[in-house]
Computed example of a mutant assay.
Amino acid sequence: MRAKRVSESLNVMNELVLPNDTNTFGNLMGGRLMYWMDIAAAYCASKHCNAPVVTASVDNISFKNPIKLGHYVHIEAYVTRAFNSSMEIYLRVRGEDTLHQFTYDSNEAYLTFVALDPNDKPRSVPEVIVETEEEQKRYDGALRRRQLRLILAGKMKPNEATELKALFAE
């Protein structure tokens, strides 16, 4: 299995916010955005491992700025790190007001996907090759984020999270 560069699985998805996508304030509904983010991240993960994938977890999604009716949504998704059968995907969401010609940050999140074999069982995924400082930073942080997810899911004991412990050791 050949390791892949982050850029090989990059996915950029664009959507136009229509009336059916908004709440009573004329803002894109959070659930609709999360739906689009899941699609963008799934495509990115599937592209990385050349296999079907399922969403395993969604980290905290914080909304910085609402995206308004008539604005465009740009979702950028890329693999930050691959583990045995899972991949962490980073998403950056921006809004674009074409009338006034500016873009703005909306939110970001990390989602985890698991690759499946033909029997719907987890399968191995390729390693990630990082090439930039930003990619390296997200790659390094991915193990800590993974350990935190596993602790919160009850799949790891806190005392086993060596990467997290290192953050708090004096």
Rank of each mutant, 00 (worst) to 15 (best):
V17K: 04
M13A: 14
Q101L: 07
V12P: 00
G31E: 08
E170V: 01
K165S: 11
L16V: 13
S86N: 12
L10I: 04
P52Y: 08
S86H: 11
L91Q: 08
N84C: 00
H71T: 03
L91P: 06
P52K: 11
V125A: 05
E163P: 00
A109S: 15
L10R: 06
S62I: 14
V93W: 02
V6A: 11
L69E: 10
L111E: 03
E133Q: 14
A42D: 03
D97P: 11
N107A: 14
V12F: 02
L33I: 11
A42S: 15
F168Y: 13
T55A: 14
A166G: 03
V128M: 03
E163I: 00
L152G: 02
E170Q: 08
Y78A: 00
L10H: 01
N23D: 15
I61H: 09
I75W: 05
N14Y: 01
R32H: 09
R2F: 01
F168N: 04
E160G: 01
R138N: 11
R2P: 12
A77S: 15
T22H: 01
P19Y: 07
R32W: 07
A115E: 14
T103W: 00
P66S: 13
F168S: 04
E160L: 01
H71Q: 10
D105L: 05
P126V: 02
G31C: 07
Y110E: 09
